[in-house]
Design a protein around this nucleic acid. Structure first.
Length: 597
DNA sequence: TGAAAGCTAAACATAT
DNA sequence: AATATGTTTAGCTTTC
């Protein structure tokens, strides 16, 4: 079964070449999409024949239709690539000028060309469609999922799911839409065996990073899946570690192709040149990943520069306000809990901000890696020997990235002290600087914290003393929300013990088998110990239940309202006797007890 | 070499 | 009943 109809790639062209005034100007093309561009260059460099892609056109379709395009061997002949500083672009691989990069890339490009329809003699369909290369994409090649359709994406399923969810408007997707997203953005899976869907479901169920959310029954089968806010930094970290994530690839080099005076009135044809410039873009292609790129930018992945870039980007500026709506619920609740003090970490300009005063997320920035157990990211960056030698590592162990078994890095998310962290509380995290690298200071801050700093927190802080009871209620509600979300609001001494296993997420049994194999026949007769569903059905199905507490002693329900606000329905055991429910509704501007009934 | 991470397959249950 | 979705177990490969 193919994906349901949805906006296709034509709505989000990966590469748009803009023709203007007879000359073809080529915008900055990230390495992520580089092969797309390369594919459009004609053998022999006949510039007059260089196809142009009008904005909005589907590059995928063009790849298919431009059958007159030939391979890129001319690139090797011209030795253009060799002159580039591709060392950084290829991630962790040290490439000597005489490395086998060209050869390998040639074969890979040939594969790409063939698979994407650029070859003048495309491979038979049986080869191109029924035999996807199950091997992962070679690490020394920039990866374009729309081009390297025969290479298995170098991302784990959890990363793919994460990207899919993050790239959705509501940050929540049903399984079916996750399938569709993956199929759209990674056509490899169109020809992959159907087992990948099983893997997706398996990952959703087992991976602690993903949480099931109830949705209205009339919206089809199944539930919505969201990224657990607690683990979002972990996933982002995992994504950064992925060898060809746009962070790590685009980060190194962006390629600007300046085709000089192509089809110009001056007739200066037959000359193309590639100019490689360094860029700090750490974001995915906003055309391919509109929401994802924006949200990662909003999450501070790219840091200061990303903000600047975003401000200059058409894609981001148009929806900049929208991105402000992406309030991290956990951060919001923490802010509510801890009040304005938590929310106002020395308001300073980003450029002037002291290192380390990054609020809740700041603890995430500290490089607390175990020097003995280097992460791949650290190894990679050491290899590159570039300034970005310190990729922010949120967790000390890869096992805490986004895996099934690791405990959440709540300490990091909360600013709760890690043994290696200088601060032991969120407050201290604000009060103390860190020795973090420059590249750290803007990363992984919660944009929502800033937003609330300007609006939400000010409202709270402006409450007169007579409203302290109200504020206490809000804090209490936020506390409940946090606790329900698995975020401890206790002090550090308790935080470790307060990491409960994520309900419904088993602790790992992966790796080598620790228990004897139990035949299916025996397992089939075991009693049904299926856990109770995590989500509850609201009487009014309009809001989506985010979190609920199955405990009978706590009648808290967290729902997401249609306006993407977080609503807490709290019925204390005593008040429930009288049918009273306090309803708190939180958004990025307000935190008020909305109704009582 | 062992452990961890990730992938795949499969059985089974439940929901639509 | 068929299909989609969700859960769980198991075994494998790869990487560290």
């Amino acid at each position: 079964m193919m994906a349901p109809e949805r906006p296709g790639p034509e709505d989000k062209p990966g590469v748009a070449l803009v023709q203007s005034g007879g000359a073809v100007t080529i915008p900055v093309i990230p390495v992520f999409s580089l092969p797309n561009t390369l594919m459009q260059l004609k053998e022999g460099d006949g510039a007059s024949n260089v196809p142009t892609v009008m904005e909005g056109e589907n590059p995928e379709r063009l790849r298919v239709e431009d059958d007159d395009l030939t391979s890129l061997t001319w690139l090797q002949d011209k030795n253009l690539l060799k002159g580039m500083n591709l060392r950084a672009a290829v991630g962790e691989h040290q490439l000597s000028p005489t490395s086998d990069f060209v050869d390998d890339s040639a074969s890979e490009l040939a594969d790409s060309t063939c698979s994407s329809g650029h070859s003048p003699s495309p491979a038979p369909p049986s080869v191109a469609t029924s035999s996807p290369n199950k091997q992962k994409h070679p690490q020394h090649m920039p990866y374009d999922p729309l081009v390297h359709v025969n290479s298995k994406p170098p991302y784990s399923f959890s990363c793919l799911i994460f990207m899919a969810i993050e790239d959705s408007p509501q940050r929540a997707l049903p399984v079916k839409e996750i399938y569709a997203w993956i199929l759209e953005h990674f056509p490899y899976f169109k020809n992959a065996p159907t087992g990948w869907k099983n893997s997706v479901r398996h990952n959703l169920s087992l991976n602690k990073c993903f949480r099931k959310v109830e949705k209205a029954p009339n919206l089809g089968k199944g539930s919505l899946w969201m990224v657990d806010p607690l683990y979002r930094p972990n996933l982002m970290q995992a994504l950064q570690k992925a060898p060809f994530h746009p962070y790590t690839t685009l980060d190194r080099v962006s390629m600007v192709t300046n085709r000089v005076q192509v089809n110009s009135p001056l007739g200066a044809v037959g000359h193309s040149e590639f100019v490689v410039i360094k860029s700090s873009s750490r974001l995915p292609n906003p055309d391919l990943f509109p929401y994802l790129s924006r949200r990662l930018a909003a999450s501070g992945v790219e840091g200061l520069r990303s903000r600047d870039v975003a401000a200059d980007s058409d894609t981001t500026t148009t929806d900049d306000a929208d991105s402000l709506d992406d309030v991290d619920a956990a951060a919001a609740m923490l802010a509510l809990k801890h009040g304005p003090r938590m929310l106002t970490p020395k308001k300073v300009d980003w450029d002037e901000r002291p290192q380390g005063n990054d609020g809740v997320g700041q603890a995430c920035l500290l490089d607390i890696r175990n020097p003995r157990k280097k992460t791949r990211a650290s190894k990679n960056t050491q290899d590159t020997g570039r300034k970005e030698k310190m990729i922010p590592v949120i967790t000390t162990s890869p096992s805490e990235d986004h895996t099934y078994s690791a405990g959440p890095t709540i300490a990091a998310a909360q600013g709760i002290a890690h043994p290696a962290l200088p601060s032991s509380s969120p407050e201290e995290a604000f009060e103390e600087g860190s020795e973090s690298d420059d590249s750290f200071q803007a990363m992984y801050h919660y944009k929502s914290m800033e937003d609330m700093e300007d609006t939400h927190a000010k409202q709270i802080s402006s409450l007169p003393p007579s409203d302290s009871e109200e504020q206490r209620k809000i804090a209490e509600g936020a506390d409940a929300l946090l606790n329900l979300a698995g975020i401890s609001t206790r002090k550090r001494t308790q935080c470790v013990a307060l990491h409960p296993p994520v309900p419904g997420k088993r602790m790992t049994t992966r790796g080598r088998r620790k228990t004897p194999y139990r035949p299916r026949l025996l397992r089939s007769i075991r009693p049904n110990i299926k856990k109770k569903p995590e989500v509850i059905h609201q009487q009014n199905q309009k809001p989506q239940t985010l979190i609920n507490n199955n405990s009978s002693s706590n009648n808290n329900n967290i729902v997401m309202t249609p306006g993407n606000n977080v609503k807490l329905l709290r019925t204390s055991p005593r008040s429930s006797l009288f049918g009273n429910t306090n309803e708190y509704e939180f958004n990025h501007n307000t935190a008020v007890e909305k109704t009582k009934r």
